[in-house]
Amino acid sequence: MAISEYAAVALVAGGAFFGLVAAVGLVRLPDVYTRTHAASKSDTLGAVLALGGVALVIDAQLATVKAVFLLLFMFLTNPTAAHAIARAARDQGIEPWTTDDADAGGEP
């Protein structure tokens, strides 16, 4: 295997790892805000790493450019969507979970 292929494997593996972290976080974290953290960021990095791996191994020039564009748009749209969700939650008056809730017997 060429070096670029090793690098691509490492990137995709990293992407898969952060995708897993995002999924676990989504299940384990207590409320909408904290879950948005997991869903938006670990997810962004996961997708970006995977796309980076793709861009490395695809030989066709054009496809690489497209992968890089996808990567850029990922960085622009993911935080925007996360912000929209969090803002909607706040507008609905949802109180953020704090450690006090955990002491009061709320689900961790």
Partner: peptide, 26 residues
């Protein structure tokens, strides 16, 4: 800045008015 804050994990921009940021931190 708002998007950078959201992208840096542990902080999430919830609302922005003019320069006043509301940020949720983990």
């Amino acid at each position: 800045l708002a998007n950078s804050i959201t992208l840096t994990p542990g902080t999430l921009t919830v609302d922005v008015t003019e320069q006043s940021f509301v940020v949720h931190s983990l």
